[in-house]
Design a protein around this nucleic acid. Structure first.
Length: 210
DNA sequence: ATCCCGAGGG
DNA sequence: CCCTCTGGAT
């Protein structure tokens, strides 16, 4: 099977498995989405949703975060990993948005990535989710799945994986592809104990673990 | 290359 | 017990 057909087959099968895959973070406002994504680094969406319920209830706007004590923010997010860094990023991100953007979350990739705790992956997720701008955010799941299925190489950096996926798939597929790959990676093609025996992609998989 | 860092799964 | 979780900054 040639590469082009294989990549189509991959997306088709994953789509069958997760047709309605979408973001699982809970949020209402624009800044809440950005904060939720930033907090989700190296942890699960469930863990983030658990703490943002009270966080978003007590902190209504950017100014609330900007004026909060680090220790107070830490107490809210204590149960997710990396909480000290994240509390610091949360406050400093709010201060920067307040001072530089008059309290409004900026809209460009560069401005977003310039915020504390916001890198390429977080910015991509935000742009795709909030503005529906075609992006493929490459995280640990997308990266692992792409490598196992032969869409990328083991030594590829997240940016390289992103570029390869963008070259393989059409722009109008990027946003949904991201969610489908994420779900496939999290619930099926897991880092540990992937469900290879039940996988419809087993025959084209480059790294089956049977 | 290394640190951050608790919860949950297996 | 051990590993991994939608990374980012230094």
């Amino acid at each position: 099977m040639i590469k082009k057909e294989e990549s189509k087959f991959i997306l088709k099968e994953i789509t069958k498995m997760f047709p309605y895959a979408t973001i699982e973070l809970h949020f209402q406002q624009k800044h809440e989405l950005l904060i939720a994504i930033m907090l989700s680094a190296q942890t699960t969406d469930k863990a983030v949703n658990k703490i943002t319920k009270k966080l978003f209830s007590d902190f209504k706007n950017i100014e609330d975060y900007a004026t909060a004590e680090f220790s107070v923010l830490e107490s809210y997010i204590k149960t997710i990993g990396l909480y000290r860094n994240k509390a610091k990023n949360l406050k400093n991100l709010a201060i920067k948005i307040l001072e530089k953007y008059d309290g409004e979350v900026p809209d460009t990739q560069k401005e977003l990535e310039d915020l504390p705790g916001v890198g390429r992956k977080t910015a991509n997720v935000f742009l795709a989710e909030y503005h529906e701008i075609p992006r493929i955010a490459v995280d640990t799941h997308v990266s692992r799945v792409s490598i196992r299925l032969g869409l990328a190489k083991i030594k590829d950096s997240p940016v390289q994986v992103e570029k390869k996926l963008m070259k393989i798939y059409d722009k109008d597929q990027w946003i949904t592809l991201h969610h489908k790959f994420i779900h496939f990676g999290r619930y099926f093609c897991k880092a540990r104990n992937p469900k290879c025996k039940e996988c419809p992609l087993l025959k084209i998989c480059k790294m089956p673990m049977i």
